[in-house]
Amino acid sequence: MAVPIAFYLILAAILFSIGIAAFLIKRNIITIFMSIELMLNAVNLTFVAFSHMWHQVSGQIFVFFVMVVAAAEAAVGLAIIISLFRVRQTLDVDQINLLKD
């Protein structure tokens, strides 16, 4: 049985929204970062669904690039997290608050 494209898109929207919620709610920097990855995954699903719809492979290639970028971002982000942890000994965003007026 065929599944409407819209369902895939809505699934992606659900994941994206959960990602947003997690980004805002989670207090651990690594988990926040993970929620960004979740959002990127949701976008990827959207791309793949549209790619299927349009019979255009460029959507899939876009996803491929998103993955590469995500990998690069992960490397840099985790490096930043490590360097932050070295200085602050915490990963709690509520304690990362030196920069305030």
């Binding site: 819209a6 898109l9 809505i10 929207a13 659900i14 994206f16 929204s17 959960i18 947003i20 919620a21 980004f23 805002l24 709610i25």
Partner: peptide, 18 residues
């Protein structure tokens, strides 16, 4: 802040998709 924001995003998106 987060739950309503995410819910709103979801509603908007799924409304459009539907």
């Amino acid at each position: 802040a987060g739950i309503p924001g995410a819910a709103a995003t979801f509603c908007l998106l799924s409304f459009v998709f539907l």
